[in-house]
Write a protein that binds this DNA or RNA. Sequence first.
DNA 1: AAAACATATCGTAATATTGCGATACAAACT
DNA 2: AGTTTGTATCGCAATATTACGATATGTTTT
Lengths: 109, 109
Amino acid sequence: MGLTKSEIFTDEQNQLSTLLKAIAHPARIAILQRIIISNTCICGDLVGELGLAQATISQHLKELKTAGIIQGTIEGVSVCYCINPKTWKLLEDQLGAFLGSYKGETTCC
Amino acid sequence: MGLTKSEIFTDEQNQLSTLLKAIAHPARIAILQRIIISNTCICGDLVGELGLAQATISQHLKELKTAGIIQGTIEGVSVCYCINPKTWKLLEDQLGAFLGSYKGETTCC
DNA sequence: AAAACATATCGTAATATTGCGATACAAACT
DNA sequence: AGTTTGTATCGCAATATTACGATATGTTTT
């Protein structure tokens, strides 16, 4: 056992959970915030700014890249990462629809 | 190691990632959708509707409850779960601020 | 009190995640 | 060619997650 039974869920549910999982880590949130703030695509100076080892940062970047949330291009010696606008919009839309489907009125429990 | 170094991140980053983690599973997304649709708080008929064992559903409900996303009150024999409006709003706000901080224009990579 | 029902918890197995040192790669200088 | 620099990958250890059967708990109904 120990493995998510994705067959029994809809594609939308699986896709959304995959995107959320990619973002659901403080280091990856921090990384994304850095990328957004320095709109001049930053690269591996994250290693200095966050308190994590280079291997760890690289791994987090890879996960964000695999999920399609960021994209990277080789920029000389270093690598330039930035947000993938398409996926970001997809996430905003899917999540907006999900969160917005709850209209808080009905007092129940 | 294998344990998240939450000390090096801000409270906001940790809080958001905790909430996201709670939601980042297809079963829990499905559970939340059911709860939202049947605004008459559903309980354990989830077990019939999703293809997961009772123990598994109960565990997912517990995780959502621990994260503060849902709340449950004993309703006779069964338990009535519903969204916790406060946490839901918090999630909407925090996530909106985070996702909205990226204005997709700047073409970079 | 006993039976029936709904949930929760325990224990366990399989798998995934997190973090890092060590090492491999690749591009740009000297 | 060799060195430096930035990044990726490998291998590992510690911990977390997912799923479920079995069992416990608690609340109604008989």
